[in-house]
Structures are given as structure tokens and as C-alpha cells.
């Protein structure tokens, strides 16, 4: 959090670190995908993990996620949103594989 509003002395160090991390995570994902070092399953597991790390980078380095006026209701809201997102995607995949042999 950069709370101070007056001085211009500081370099936006946090933002630069965030950008560096997001680029790094992207290149690691691409390198893993291109190298064919691992099978499809493990690669996907790892790059999904990297994508989750990217969310954390965006939220904490760029989006001022912890700032709030009063209780941090937006964090609760987003948490429920993420639970429901997982429910929709995982649930749908689980349900809709019923006729995967057809296609």
C-alpha cells in the first residue's frame, strides 16, 4: 500500500516487481509448454498453478486489494465469487462428461 499522497520521492518499486513477476510467470508457462518435458496432465497442473499466482500478483501488486473503507467486504465477495467459479467449472465438467464417448 502506498498510503502517502504528497511526496514524489519513491520509485514505484512495488509495481515494477509486480510486472517483473507477471512476465516471469508467463515465460515459465510458455517454456514448460514448448519444451514437452512433461506429459499433458502435469504441465497443465503446473501452468494452472502459475495462472493462480498471476492472480495474486495482480491483486496485491496492482489492485490495492487490501484497501477498504470499513470492513473488507470486497474480499468476502470475491472469495464467494471464486468458490462459485470453481463450482461452475468443475461441476459442469463433471456433469457434462456424461456423453464424452459420443464425440
Amino acid at each position: 500500500m502506498n498510503g502517502s499522497t504528497q511526496k514524489h520521492a519513491l520509485f514505484p518499486i512495488k509495481n515494477v516487481i509486480g510486472f517483473g513477476l507477471s512476465l516471469l510467470l508467463t515465460f515459465v508457462a510458455i517454456a514448460l509448454g514448448v519444451s514437452h518435458a512433461l506429459a499433458f496432465g502435469p504441465v497443465m497442473m503446473i501452468i494452472m498453478g502459475l495462472a493462480v499466482l498471476q492472480i495474486i500478483v495482480q491483486l496485491f501488486f496492482f489492485m490495492h486489494f487490501t484497501e477498504s473503507d470499513g470492513p473488507a467486504y470486497h474480499i468476502i465477495g470475491l472469495a464467494i465469487g471464486i468458490i462459485n467459479t470453481i463450482a461452475i467449472i468443475a461441476g459442469t465438467l463433471w456433469i457434462m462428461t456424461f456423453n464424452s464417448q459420443v464425440h
Partner: peptide, 27 residues
Amino acid sequence: PLNILGFWIFLATDLLLFACLFATYLV
């Protein structure tokens, strides 16, 4: 504060919108 909280919640709804599109894509 009202608009900022409201917008965070809007983002959560947009997240769900994309979740449905991702689910469709994956299926």
C-alpha cells in the same frame, strides 16, 4: 467507497460470466 465496493462486486459477477464461458469452452 460505495462505488469502489460496488465495482468490486461487479467484477465478481463478471468473473462468473467468464466462468460460464470457460466452462462452455472446456466442455
